[in-house]
């Protein structure tokens, strides 16, 4: 087998390897031919290019398998780097974390204020109507005595106030109930999420 035949056969058998692997192997065997006393002597010593290629392929596969086995474990330096970065950037992390916490608290407070405000507003309105009902009812008694039509008007207004007040009161009660349901739903939802994470 001549030098060129040997090298061509070797290259053909190694064609599945990455280019740098092929080049390294070809370089070594080209050099072997160059250094040897004669082409025949080198070819005789080296033997079959197929056998040589098989050894290279087997060794490459074993090396790759070995590398793949090693891969999952992270070096301790990775963790050291992460911790150092955390310390180094702690002002930024604390700043961003603080801002996020502040924003979350603000939103929660606004929500609470809004809920309390709306419910409180309805409650106040209901109480005011109830008060108006009592005042008008008290006022209609002397009005009846002096001028009956005015008394009737005041009585009607008083009853209307009572009706609206009762309606608003009932509505406020429902509002409280719904808000309670909403808070409970949010709370249990959060707990369920936490529970799922813990698993």
């Amino acid at each position: 087998m001549t030098r060129s035949e040997f090298l061509a056969a070797l290259r053909r058998r190694l064609s599945h390897l990455p280019p740098e692997e092929q080049d390294a192997a070809l370089k070594y065997y080209e050099e072997y031919f160059d250094e040897a006393e004669s082409e025949e002597e080198a070819a005789r010593q080296l033997g079959s290019p197929d056998a040589i290629a098989d050894r290279i392929l087997a060794d490459y596969g074993a090396g790759r398998a070995h590398a793949a086995e090693k891969k999952p474990g992270r070096s301790p330096w990775f963790y050291v780097a992460i911790v150092s970065l955390c310390i180094l950037f702690s002002p930024v992390i604390l700043g961003v974390g603080g801002a996020a916490l502040a924003a979350a608290l603000t939103i929660a407070c606004l929500f609470l204020v809004a809920v309390v405000g709306v419910i409180g507003g309805f409650l106040c309105a209901a109480l005011a109507l109830l008060a108006a009902f009592v005042i008008l009812l008290v006022a209609c008694v002397p009005a009846f005595a002096s001028f009956p039509p005015a008394g009737t008007l005041l009585l009607g207004a008083s009853l209307a106030c009572a009706g609206m007040g009762a309606l608003l009161g009932v509505f406020t009660g429902y509002l409280c109930y719904w808000t309670g349901l909403l808070f409970r739903a949010m709370f249990t939802c959060g707990r369920r999420k936490k529970g799922a994470k813990a698993k």
Binding site: A24, A25, Y28, Y29, E31, Y32, D34, E35, A36, Q45, L46, G47, A51, I52, R55, I56, D59, G63
Partner: peptide, 29 residues
């Protein structure tokens, strides 16, 4: 260089000439 170490070790250890390259490549990697 490759040819020289191959000659040295194949004669010294009685292994075939084709066994040296994979060893060199592995050690390099």
């Amino acid at each position: 260089y490759g040819y020289r170490i191959t000659q040295q070790l194949t004669h010294g250890l009685g292994v075939s000439e084709s066994s040296l390259y994979p060893v060199l490549r592995r050690l390099q990697k």
